[in-house]
Design a protein around this nucleic acid. Structure first.
Length: 585
RNA sequence: GCGCCCAUAGCUCAGUUGGAUAGAGCGUUGGACUACGAAUCCAAAGGCCGCAAGUUCGAAUCUUGCUGGGCGCGCCA
């Protein structure tokens, strides 16, 4: 079945074409742009088009006249389609469409027929998309900011997958370079400390407590031999340990990468050398008097970057920029036609450079989309939680996960536009309000499951599609809910097109909200399970459909859709005391 | 100084390609459980969509300027 909006779009387009044929509209009407929108008010129908406004302009008539012509033509087309019940005109010139029972029937049939596959589309036509996210340096544990990027990347990947892309989740590991050396040097000092020797963490080193713990672990393992290890060796050992920890954190967050791509691989393969030499031979890069190799400013000019950029430092090390260009080239060589990177918003100035870099390798920079994720403010009772009381102290992802749980954290991290700052109040997220939509949606799903359980216990047949039952779903709320379910695929497509997962969270909340309202309104007058077996079967069918869509959508978010919720969070008295204690620092 | 992002209800935020009387949650006030889950629902109050021009049948949405916030402009990542 076609998407609801598509149904109306096609009817309008055909109506316009027919109108041209019959001389009602000028030929230019064929190319007129129009919208199909969800009206805000129920009396304006299910979907509306503004097509009469541009048509009126072409005709030199007022919009109401053009709308009337369009209505008559659209009515004929709608009659052939069968999914539209009525077409009306409303001032100042909107043409409003109301869906038919057949629309609802076909929709429900599709939900039951496709089950967990309902909502998937083939917009991507199997195109290969690479979603690179997190990619934090293995020099420390993940913090909340990484957590947000992790969820946004993971959900975008799931959304694209549901929209027909072949998706690969990738983590780029900067396992080489100055930062890794700094880690090794810091570790070296902590080992001295553990041995009771004088020590000094380098100024640009890592001061966090975790380095001390790593040192202790190494000393416990190797004893005195730890002190003899070279910085390079310590760098390798430490970053490997930290990368394992990062992997564990992500896994407990429900995130699994297909590829862990190591920067060192690019070096050992000689890819960076080849890249730099190639750029030099084509005159795009040049040797600087100081011994560095620069990418000429011309390369970046069309992207808004007008400075020479360093590829190889005068000490001979390649910059991250050089390896990033080689890395993106590598991704494209592996056959991806879309590259999606999730970055912290503070890296936005880097985008023109990377686009320029892609261009210099002879590829189309338009294949790259960057999702900029803004920072997360961690709060408790509205007050900021200290993020850097002393150097190296921050709220780790692991801490947040253990406090609020995986599902809540996932929803909070992707419930806002990625480029908007996010306040993450640990207390609010433990509450059960719409500020914490995970409980709202999970409760809704569990509630529906509870109804279905009760029906099953009474020996009723489980929800199933039956076209003969559709007319029984005659309440306005029931029709509205079915219509809304039919918009689920479009909600996914919107997320895919904008690379913004938050639309899905809103879709879920609005859908379950509508069900909650329906449930409560009729709980004493028109319950799902009643004496009327036909009506009961029809309403169970509706519940089953809502449940399927909710479960599918929550699956894309990576959030559990529980069949029951037995425990009541937030009621535990010990919690208050612990919060008070934490506030002291 | 140059560039990017942001500004919508008391608070946190939605608002699709420009559409009809700008929405939701929280908070406030007042209501709804003898029945399938009240972790829910209903209602009220609450708005110069930062300011000012422009574009047009129509602007929260597009253009320009201004104000106020965040970020970037390293041989850092």
């Amino acid at each position: 079945m076609k998407a609801p909006r598509q149904i109306v779009e096609e009817i309008v387009r055909k109506a316009v074409a027919r109108g041209i044929e019959r001389g009602a509209f000028p030929a230019a009407a064929a190319t007129v742009g129009f919208g199909v929108d969800l009206p805000k008010k129920a009396e304006h129908g299910d979907l509306a088009t503004n097509a009469a406004f541009p048509l009126a302009k072409l005709l030199g008539q007022n919009p109401m006249e053009a709308a009337e012509k369009l209505r008559a033509l659209a009515l004929d087309e709608a009659g052939m389609d069968g999914h539209i019940e009525s077409v009306t005109v409303a001032r100042p010139g909107f043409v409003n469409f109301v869906f038919s029972e057949q629309f609802r029937s076909d929709g429900l049939r599709e939900i039951f027929a496709r089950g967990s596959g309902f909502g998937r589309t083939d917009e991507g036509r199997g195109a290969r998309a690479n979603v690179e996210f997190v990619s934090a340096n293995p020099t420390g544990p993940l913090h909340v900011g990484h957590g947000r990027g992790a969820v946004v990347g993971d959900v975008v990947a799931s959304v694209l997958s549901a929209c027909g892309y072949t998706v690969s989740r990738e983590y780029y590991v900067n396992d080489q370079g100055a930062q890794i050396r700094n880690l090794g040097a810091s570790l070296k000092e902590r080992i001295k400390e553990a041995a009771g020797e004088p020590f000094e963490i380098p100024a640009d080193g890592y001061h966090g407590e975790y380095v001390r713990e790593l040192a202790a672990e190494l000393v416990a393992q190797k004893g005195g031999a730890a002190g003899a290890m070279a910085v390079e060796e310590l760098s390798g050992w430490g970053s490997a340990r930290l990368l394992e920890a990062i992997g564990r954190d992500l896994e407990s967050f429900g995130i699994k990468f297909d590829v862990w791509f190591r920067e060192s691989e690019l070096h050992s393969r000689g890819a960076i050398k080849v890249l730099v030499e190639g750029l030099k031979s084509r005159g795009l890069a040049f040797d600087d008097p100081t011994g560095a190799v620069m990418l000429g400013a011309e390369a970046g000019r069309e992207f808004g970057d007008d400075k020479d950029r360093v590829l190889v430092k005068s000490n001979g090390d390649a910059t991250y920029f050089a390896s990033d260009v080689a890395y993106h080239e590598d991704k494209l060589k592996r056959g991806f036609s879309r590259l999606i990177n999730v970055w912290g918003a503070d890296h936005h100035g880097y985008i023109p450079r990377v686009r320029a870099g892609i261009k210099t390798t002879g590829r189309d920079p338009a294949v790259l989309d960057v999702i900029l994720v803004q920072m997360v403010n961690v709060l408790r009772h509205g007050k900021p939680v200290a993020m850097s009381k002393r150097s190296g102290s921050f709220v780790t992802l692991r801490e947040v996960l253990s406090e609020v749980g995986r599902d809540a954290a996932r929803v909070v991290f992707c419930m806002r536009r990625p480029d908007a700052q996010l306040d993450f109040d640990l207390e609010i997220v433990k509450r059960r309000t719409l500020d914490n939509p995970v409980f709202y949606m999970q409760y809704g799903h569990a509630r529906i499951c509870s109804i279905l359980r009760k029906a099953a216990a009474m020996g009723l047949t489980p929800p199933a599609y039956d076209s003969g039952l559709v007319p029984k779903l005659a309440l306005p709320e029931e029709r509205e809910i079915i219509k809304r379910l039919m918009f689920y695929p479009e909600a996914l497509l919107l997320c895919a097109r904008t690379l913004e997962p938050h639309h899905l969270v809103f879709y879920i909340n609005e859908t379950i909200g509508e069900f909650h309202g329906y449930y409560t309104k009729y709980k004493n007058t028109a319950r799902v399970i009643s004496e009327d077996t036909q009506l009961t079967a029809a309403r169970l069918m509706l519940c089953g459909a809502v449940r399927t869509v909710l479960a599918n959508a929550m699956g894309v978010l990576g959030v559990e859709a529980p069949e029951r919720m037995d425990s009541m969070p937030g009621d535990d008295a010990g919690e208050e005391a612990r919060d008070e204690a934490k506030e002291e620092d």
